[in-house]
Amino acid sequence: MEYDPTDPIHQFQISSIVPIKIGSWDFSFTNSALFMVLTVAVTAAFLYYTTRGRGLVPSRAQSVTELTYEFTANMLRDAAGTAGMRFFPFVFAIFLFVLVANLFGMIPFFFTVTSHLIVTFALAMLVMTVVVVYGLMKHGLHFFHLFVPSGVPGILMPLVVLIEVVSFLSRPVSLSVRLFANMLAGHITLKVFAGFIVSLSAFGFVGVIGSILPLLMVIALTALEFLVAALQAYVFAVLTCMYLNDALHPGH
């Protein structure tokens, strides 16, 4: 198939860089994997080098790291209390991974890792696994009180429990689909409007003048996308904190 430069979907294509095959499974090192590694490497390097000075009066870069730390710590403490702070490394890692991956997607020619459902779903399942395993470990069967709200008449109980279970199961779906859909839709919109510029300017002088409109739109959308990238990372982290709260304090 011939490559069309204005194809809005092309940017999400996965191509293998180092093909690795184990048995019948494809473990190729893809561009998606490359950018995941880059995300982790850049995040870790940034955190390491900015805090290396250990200044009592932080440098600018160090205060960025400190602000991020405090922001996440406050978020977790608000949602899950001080007991939730044991999950701080987990929440901080997830927040930074999603944030940096989202922002990486805003750099031209970079691959957006979080625009693939399987990546965000894996992250969401990781959160849910931690919630369920920790909840069962700490509270045993008491954890299932999460599904039994108090003050419900006995005859309605099976129905309400069923609804609560489905509602619980829908959490990883909503968590992952929200992040994935926002990133995917945003990047497609950007690409489509950028494509308008190219196609319009093919119509000679009038087209070039007319292409100013989509250009303005692309500029506005780029700003919006930066907002969405940060916002979705924040939402993901906040919900992670809330779900962890359920693992710590299932209904009494």
Partner: peptide
């Protein structure tokens, strides 16, 4: 500014997720 957008998208996806999971089950 952004809080409103985030809230709206959150609610929409929460609702959709419930239906999707229900349908899948």
């Amino acid at each position: 500014t952004g809080q409103g957008i985030a809230e709206g998208l959150k609610l929409a996806s929460e609702f959709a997720a419930g239906i999707i999971v229900g349908a899948a089950i």
